[in-house]
Design a binder for these strands. Structure first.
Lengths: 218, 218, 218, 218
DNA sequence: AGGTAATCGAGACGGTACGTCGCGTCTTCAG
DNA sequence: CTGAAGACGCGACGTACCGTCTCGATTACCT
């Protein structure tokens, strides 16, 4: 759904015969993304309209419709740029437990940033609209899930005997690790306190130990 | 925000001297709630309009606006009626572990029911609109949280030495218990598999044991 | 259409066995008429609503609908009471010419009074609504026309040789006499200046003389 | 108030540098005017709604509101186009008396035409609404009055000694000439019979003779 | 250098739903 | 039975954005 930048969209019908005329203006693209971002943070998703974005960005409506399908598509575009690095795993800084705690804390902080609000809005809208859900889950969320599995997997490999870390286990542990944080944010809208971060991190490590030592799971 | 039924709204200044004239029609109220519920399930939140509800319910738009502030307000009304019992704790049926697993399974099933879809839509909209968030969290979600704490507390009291169950511990455990389920549903939109239910239930009991036996956490 | 007061309307089904319960409250009737009158003068016809009248008069809407068919019907009621005497012919005060001038002047003044504004509004609405037109023309205007013919006829009888005054002539002369005044008011909305009053009065007398002396009309 | 066509409205600040983008669609304008005209004649002023016009014209409501302030404004627009020529003075065809009679007859016929019904409705509404009154009287009626004065003046100049025709006299005579016709139509809603036309025409000429021969009135 | 083909601003246009107003009917209760 | 209060179905109001479209002006590439 989202129109990404680097890999130009598939609308180049004949890539051999490069076409004449001006190319897509990068400044316009950024103006739209920033306008959308600002308006979302300032006035909320409901007040975010294509006409409003166009006016704020000093751009014609048609120009927006040329490159994005909807306001959701614009937000998906901003998310791809901004959220990936904020949710990156930076392991190997200290002990596995410290690393895990640090990462969770960064996830917790992320929701307070603009990019976090964009994601919160998109997650919200995904509950209301199947197309948004498909775009978000088929794109960013799927990739992020992969990064989370890889990140947690690497960390556990470091903490435990490597051979015992199997993928299905890590997959489950990701749910147990991130679930409580998202629950706090999405359901209760409360900031995530340090205690929850610490408890969850320690819990998952404990559990990983237990699972790998006994392995009673079907 | 929501117009509740049994406890009449605060506009009765003097319940003794009730005013003259016709009273609010209960049949109209139900027609609206059912129409909203049906349309949400059939066509989704985006296609849910006040005009659509009015037409489906065979009711005038003005009548809806007289009693509800918005379509969100209508959904909040349906939630209060329907979701409470679906998320009730019915403990004392078997072993603590079985009881907990049963309850989680009912929570998991709940999201597939109409009332669950209403709640999912409301949680989604709460990410987009502060007023919805305030209404939902200040009303249903707060009460449900209390019921969850009471329910899990009672269950743990049965499972462990009663004196050791303190409220703050239970509060945390509720997050760890329900977080992964909501995460699955809200973020990935996937049905909750039995494995996650079992793992989570067992995990929380394990954790409760650990916390109460070793140290009560700072 | 208009509910008149003295000759009770035809809704008394059995005039012999007089019915039980309270009779129509005259105070309610007057409150409604005055409220309608006041609102018309203060805010204009467009802002004159049944609900507004009811509120102003401290009366329930149903009470109004019980006795009048529409807001036009209310205005017709006020007109009957007030306009008749304002447009009465009071001849025999002086010379025929003076009498005629005086009468025209009173007609001119009438439009500035509340009752005149009611009539102006009704004449306006009669252009827009056939039912209003029928009620107004079949009732008040027809009667007023008769009074005008009688009045002018009597005056001309005094001024000319009695035998020569025939009804068809007077009928025409009424148009020529009042037409210019109504034209000024209804079409141009201007106050009627004394010059027009004098000219018209004199003109009609001149014309009457001419017609009766030569009588060339078919 | 009325959006006129030929003399483009004053919103062109610099007619040389005309703005970019699509221009006002003339076909839309005509569709709206015709729809309004038709509906007025078919169903009357009360049943004439913006929504009805929009539907009949196959046009969006917003498009109507973009160019006209109200349904009255639309009717004013149709009037400007249609009524002017119907009420034109075409003198010099025959004797002054014949010319005058012919003109009055055309005025009489005018009220039966669609354009005449539009004008009747506007005159009616002008009694009920000050803004309508101001627009109508400040625009069409003022111009028509000028044309009437010019037309009657030219005719009298032909009929009498030119030097004796002064403007104030003609101004009065216009009232005396047209007043009775409008009185018949607006107050009694009756068609204008030939007799009234002939009488009025002859009367005004007689009067003009008298005024110019004897004294020019204070 | 000119032609060609795209982008871009502006905004008119047919729509849908909004939230409000007043209509005329109806129901309830007090006197 | 009257009358105040007001809920109800209804229709139109005037507004906000939607997504599509038509303009003219402005580039950038390609003969």
């Amino acid at each position: 759904m989202s129109a990404t930048r680097k890999p130009q969209p598939a609308c180049d019908q004949h890539p051999v015969i490069s076409r004449t005329g001006p190319r897509r203006s990068e400044s316009v693209r950024l103006a739209v993304l920033h306008a959308a971002d600002d308006l979302l943070v300032e006035r909320g998703f409901a007040a975010l309209t294509i006409e409003g974005i166009a006016q704020r960005a000093g751009v014609a409506k048609q120009t927006i419709y040329r490159w994005w399908k909807s306001k959701v598509d614009i937000l998906l575009d901003t998310l791809t740029d901004d959220a990936r690095e904020a949710l990156e795993w930076r392991t190997g800084q200290g002990s596995p437990e410290d690393d895990l705690t640090d990462h969770l804390q960064r996830v917790a902080d992320f929701f307070a940033e603009p990019a976090g609000q964009v994601m919160q809005a998109l997650l919200g809208h995904a509950q209301l609209d199947k197309e948004t859900a498909a775009s978000l889950r088929g794109g960013f969320l799927r990739e992020q899930r992969e990064r989370d599995i890889a990140g947690l997997g690497a960390l556990l490999t470091r903490a435990l005997a490597p051979a015992t870390v199997d993928d299905r286990l890590v997959d489950h542990l990701v749910d147990l690790l991130l679930g409580p944080l998202y629950y706090r944010v999405l359901v209760f809208g409360k900031p995530i306190d340090k205690e929850l971060v610490n408890t969850t991190a320690r819990l998952v490590l404990t559990l990983a130990h237990e699972f790998t030592s006994t392995e009673p799971e079907a």
